[in-house]
């Protein structure tokens, strides 16, 4: 298991390196420097600014500095637009918020989706099954940016039950709608994957053996069917986590949570490449880590992979 973990970790490093290098070059391919966009600056001022951001250095030196700063000091450098803040400040301010409800949404869609899918498969062809299947398809058509307005319309404007936005230290009233908006469509897809995986597992030979041994239905499902059933689900959870992370950009913006997404969209509109890249790389690193975690979870489920 340790060797497996190490090998997987070894595979993750080039991915992260490539991500940083590719992002760096993308930034330098952008038409015009980040400071030439608005009104023209006097050459002397421009040179001063470029010196401050290290833009007068040769390209490889810039890349090297950028790379080592991120990898060794976890430092994404200064923001191009906010003179007194660097990217780390912006991340430190917004990321905890985004991560909080991002993680909550991930939990909610996993738990609800898996339970619903399992229930539907066990009660195959019952009303519960039909309900889960239709809900699965309908929910997939309701991504966060559709759910957001619908929720606010219903619970804030019509019913007046919940605040329409803000963070307020993460009180539950402020969390409910962002979490529902983020998780709905993935509840749908996780339900569908779980259901079909469970149906397939229940049809397999070893379940027949377990039944022939006289085990109770509960034992058959929990002890024998659960782990093999979870394998395709777990491999889908990695992508779901990424989707939830990206979705949180919308939630930050729409529910004004003060999370990282607001800064991200802001920097995209004002071409603040430093922030844009910093956040993309951060999310990329997180994705790589989550994929690593799903790989390990998969190995835990399937003894054939452990070695």
């Amino acid at each position: 298991m340790l060797a497996y973990t190490l090998r997987r970790l070894g595979g993750a490093i080039p991915t992260i390196l490539l991500l940083i290098i590719a992002s760096f070059f993308l930034m330098h391919m952008a038409p015009g420097g980040p400071f030439t966009s608005e009104r023209p600056l006097p050459p002397q001022v421009l040179a001063n600014i470029e010196a401050r951001y290290g833009l007068d250095q040769p390209l490889w030196k810039q890349l090297w500095d950028y790379l080592t700063n991120i990898l060794l000091h976890f430092d994404f450098g200064p923001s191009f637009k906010f003179k007194d803040r660097d990217v780390n400040d912006i991340i430190a301010q917004g990321f905890p918020i985004s991560l909080t409800y991002g993680f909550l949404s991930f939990l909610v869609c996993t738990i609800v989706g898996v339970s619903l899918g399992v229930a539907a498969a066990i009660k195959h062809n019952s009303w519960l099954d039909y309900f889960a299947v239709s809900l699965g398809i309908a929910a997939q058509a309701l991504p966060n940016f559709i759910m957001g307005p619908i929720l606010i319309l219903t619970f804030t404007l019509w019913l007046g039950w919940l605040p329409g936005g803000g963070w307020n230290g993460g009180q539950w009233q402020y969390l409910i709608m962002p979490v529902i908006a983020l998780s709905t469509s993935y509840i749908g897809s996780i339900t569908r994957i779980t259901r079909s995986s469970m149906l397939e597992t229940l049809n397999s030979n070893f379940i027949r053996t377990a039944k022939a041994k006289g085990l109770s239905t509960r034992t058959v499902i929990w002890r024998h069917a659960m782990k093999p059933m979870l394998m395709p689900v777990v491999s889908y959870l990695g992508p779901v986590f990424v989707y939830v992370l990206t979705g949180s950009v919308f939630v930050d913006l729409y529910f004004s949570t003060g999370g990282l997404g607001q800064a991200y969209v802001g920097s995209a509109l004002s071409r603040d490449y430093a922030v844009l890249l910093g956040v993309t790389i951060l999310y990329g690193m997180l994705t790589v880590l989550v994929n690593l975690a799903t790989d390990l979870a998969y190995a835990w489920l399937d003894p054939k992979i452990r070695y």
Binding site: F206, T209, K211, P228, D302
Partner: peptide
């Protein structure tokens, strides 16, 4: 039926590769 299955009647199947639970 569970009082009978596995206790009074035992059963073995054709394909031993898939008849055992893989993770136990």
């Amino acid at each position: 039926l569970n009082a009978v299955r596995g206790s009074k009647i035992g059963m073995i199947f054709q394909d031993p590769l898939t008849a055992l639970t893989p993770h136990l």
